[in-house]
Simulated assay, not measured.
Amino acid sequence: MILKNCRIFDGNSFINDTAVLIEDDKIIKTLPESELSDYTDKETIDLNNSVLSPGFIDLQLNGCGGVLFNDDISRKTLEIMNETNQKYGCTSFLPTLITSPDEKILKSLDLIDNMNDMEQIGVLGLHIEGPNISLEKKGIHNADYIRILSDDMVDRIASSGNKTVKIITMAPEKAQPAHLEKLKGAGIHVSIGHTFAKYSECESKKDYFKNATHLFNAMTEFGSREPGVVGFIFDKKDIYAGVIADGFHSDFASIRIAHGVLQDKLYLVTDAVSPAGTDMKEFIFEGKRVFHENGKCFDENGTLGGSALVMNAGVRNLVHHTGLPKEEALRMATSYPAKAISVEDRYGFIKPGYVADFAILNDNFDVLGIVAKGKYKKFN
């Protein structure tokens, strides 16, 4: 299959007058449109001058399309999440399990361990968010389940390794060095989040934290006398940080400031929950009733409980409200998250040998169609 008459964003920059040749689920080559006469035997799709971007990658997705991973840890849930994601240009994601009992962690590990075709339904691995988090910064997480994981559970997570678990979120003050060492050794990205730590507590474990979970939210703020977790992330500059660009979790000016510091280490996440992509008004999140109103998800106390953001809307917000260039907003949804979990050798770019995952967009970032694992699907 050949995709032509498009403005290709290749994960770095825009390239013109170029087509993409796909075979099965891989990109074979990009080629000048002037050479298309050599490929008359190939199915050719005219994209009518649309933007062709790598498929968006969401590294923190609790649910969408009316389902929640914490509620139903099953392949069916993942399939619904993937189908919903595709409508918004997202072709890869990390299903995210928030603080929950050991039984749910084990069930999620077993599910992904035994799923040989998980990438075919968009799953790149798990994001386990908690339970080693701070009560003071728990957000919507259920306090009854917050705890320090046992040695056996850490061994079990590490045994699955990076193929199954891409990210685990922990508060530094609740993370034991021996556990951090084991998780790091297994290739799992340990992410700093839901933490009440001081800068010094982060500094003492700096070698273990390579990611940060929803920057600004559920972490100690930057101050003149106590730099806090935000100050630690800004100071290190080598930590990949996710940010929720929905206008509720962070002021857009704060995102712009963070981008000025972190540059290519800042990537877009949704932290979406079941209402994303639906008109649901409320749902239960690990025992808590959460309401959805005007795009905002919150409990009866006003605490944010995930988001209803979808990836293409996040990209649009970065451009329209944060003022980032279109190319940089697209990088934050494609190549930057790919690098943040070390899959940039296969995902996040339009290059020969890469997985054929694309989002087809108009200039307002509406999704006109997608290509997922080499299969074309038109929406509008």
Rank of each mutant, 00 (worst) to 15 (best):
D238L: 12
I239D: 01
I239N: 02
V243L: 07
V243C: 04
V243H: 01
G247N: 11
G247K: 09
H249G: 00
S250I: 04
S250N: 11
D251Q: 04
F252T: 02
A253G: 09
A253S: 12
A253E: 06
S254A: 03
I255Q: 05
R256T: 05
I257H: 04
I257L: 10
A258R: 00
G260K: 03
L262S: 09
D264N: 15
K265E: 04
K265T: 02
L266C: 03
V269E: 01
T270A: 14
D271V: 10
A272E: 07
V273M: 08
S274L: 05
A276F: 04
T278I: 09
T278W: 03
D279M: 05
K281T: 13
K281M: 05
E282G: 05
F283N: 12
F283Y: 13
F283M: 10
I284L: 13
E286F: 10
G287M: 12
K288C: 11
R289S: 06
R289K: 14
V290D: 08
F291Y: 15
H292D: 01
H292I: 07
E293R: 07
E293V: 08
E293N: 08
G295D: 03
C297N: 13
C297A: 15
E300K: 11
N301D: 09
N301A: 11
G302D: 05
L304C: 07
L304F: 06
G305N: 10
G305E: 10
G305S: 15
S307E: 05
S307G: 10
S307C: 13
S307T: 14
A308T: 14
A308K: 08
L309K: 03
L309D: 06
L309Y: 07
M311D: 04
N312D: 09
A313H: 08
G314E: 04
R316A: 08
N317G: 02
L318H: 07
V319W: 01
V319K: 10
H320L: 15
G323I: 00
G323V: 00
G323D: 00
L324R: 00
P325C: 13
E327T: 12
A329D: 01
A329T: 01
R331F: 01
A333R: 02
A333M: 02
Y336C: 01
P337S: 12
A338K: 15
K339S: 14
A340G: 10
I341K: 08
S342M: 13
S342R: 14
S342P: 01
V343N: 13
V343W: 11
E344P: 02
E344D: 15
D345H: 14
D345G: 08
Y347Q: 15
G348F: 05
I350E: 01
I350W: 04
I350R: 07
K351E: 13
K351Y: 10
P352A: 14
Y354F: 15
V355E: 07
F358M: 09
F358K: 03
